[in-house]
Design a protein around this nucleic acid. Structure first.
Lengths: 145, 145
DNA sequence: TATTGTTATACTCTATAACTATA
DNA sequence: TATAGTTATAGAGTATAACAATA
């Protein structure tokens, strides 16, 4: 426990967070995929095939919202769906060759604006930033809607 | 300078930032105004009357985008516009009594979900969080679009 | 020419509600 | 009943483009 933060401190923090996420979106938008889509494609590329519901839980959005993202990725040919072997309700999602190619293209990784910008920070700032990421998660988890 | 962060560290950070801003939006949505609108109203309440262009610069959005936010606030009767005394192009924006009432209602301030959640963190986490806010700003400012 | 502001249009992201199919 | 997924609809937030008025 500490104290209640000043209103301007909170406002500044919210603005910083908003600016950063907009800046990230703008940077990603120069690629073929949007930020949400890239995030899901990245997850499917490094983890096992997953269902829409799995992805929604992992990304912290509603299943219907994830349905939209997943549909866009499938329309673009970046992921494909196969029926679950035993559960007829589920569809397993996995990256296609096209999806993997976009991901593994070293250019895509190196061009990530945020990774590059962070690499220019000194070590202390990097550590503060990533530590704050976990604190943000604590805030959200502690008091979910 | 430090090193290039791992991709998963960056992805986790982006997700944390996204989760937090969504959580904040959801919390604010229970009030009469949206997050963008509250932010602008707060600024006009603590600073001098400003133009749409001023506000756009201060909040880091395009003037057209700010025009939308400002129009919503004016439609709701939270702010009002008066012509600039010497510059015929400009309209000065200031809160109305209704806008100030919403702002100064202590309930509005105390009910801010984020301020409350932050108050429950220990002092070290609070400091890390606010320090990270400034680092995020550095990231955005260092390499603007 | 530059700036302020407006209007039109569109995209991203996400949500809620209502529904079907399967477990 | 609970879960997975789909479809429809809506709202917040922001952007780009094109324009008129004023500086």
């Amino acid at each position: 426990m500490a104290r209640i933060p000043s209103e301007t401190a909170v406002n500044d923090l919210v603005q910083s967070v908003g600016l950063l996420i907009r800046r990230i979106r703008a940077a990603v938008a120069s690629n073929e995929l949007s930020l949400s889509e890239m995030s899901v494609l990245a997850r499917l590329s490094r983890e096992d095939p997953a269902t829409t519901a799995d992805l929604a839980r992992a990304e912290g959005v509603k299943p219907q919202s994830m349905g939209t993202t997943v549909a866009a990725l499938e329309d673009g040919g970046y992921i494909e769906r196969t029926p679950h072997p035993t559960d007829g309700r589920q569809m397993l999602l996995a990256p296609t060759a096209k999806g993997l190619a976009l991901r593994t293209s070293s250019r895509a990784a190196k061009r990530t604006w945020l990774a590059h910008a962070i690499s220019q920070l000194d070590k202390a700032d990097q550590e503060t930033l990533f530590a704050a990421g976990e604190i943000m998660r604590k805030l959200v988890d502690r008091d979910p809607r």
